[in-house]
Amino acid sequence: MTEAYSFAYLDESTKRMIRRTLLKALAVPGYQVPFASREMPMPYGWGTGGVQVTAACLVPEDVLKVIDQGADDTTNAVSIRRFFQRTAGVAVTEHTTEASLIQTRHRIPEAPLKEGQILIYQVPIPEPLRFLEPRESETRKMHALEEYGLMHVKLYEDIARHGAIATSYGYPVKVEGRYVMDPSPIPKFDNPKLSGNPAIQLFGAGRESRIHALPPYTRVVNLDFEDHPFEPTKADAACDLCGATTSYLDEVIMDDAGGRMFCCSDTDFCATRRAAGHAGRLAPGGEAA
């Protein structure tokens, strides 16, 4: 840890301000609490909100894991992990089960979370009604008065145009029967994991200066129609590296001839399975294609 930095980069009064916001957000699940978002040494859209929440939650004993689209080894994950290694000197890990604090972009880990863990989401646009109603004054009023009919207009439009609810990420949810929340752009495959999760889930939006949260074991319901119920979706295939059939998959183009493969988006989950002896179609020493 470099002496020039306060622990975890942010100064103590800023962390205090964010912690107070977090407490309020946890007390009113799903409600977007404004906070005085700081400029961070990274551009907006790279997780400035998540980083601030992480900085406010970190303690020296924490074990940090950072996920970018499920992966531990992509630019965003690597740079944020190094940032906190340098400024906070905390231990880091790639294993979901070993981490006490996980900052994530666009995924919930496949391995079930447990009590005592904190999952922090990077959120680009926290307002689920934003693309339906551009006025902030109006969306606040709609949240206050629970006027959420408009959200269903969007889902109606989806079905009318595509025959099914085509919203596949950032799928709107209702928290404890009260606030409608945008769960950040996680695939709707991950939505069921939001509900009744033993871990604390915190959502930080840096550019929009909003924090919202789900305390452990919060009831989260996906919005849908009676005759078009919510369905989590994934690619209809198995992971070509570890053979998993129940995880969320990335599709990777292999060559210019249309060759492609599927692999787990959660790299830790995939690696753990391979270490345990599971093998997929393209795994070295696995079954032949």
Binding site: G149, V153, Y156, F225, E226, H228
Partner: peptide, 12 residues
Amino acid sequence: GERLMAVGARHY
């Protein structure tokens, strides 16, 4: 349909 959904219709 918007007004119907605003008053709670949830059957497409």
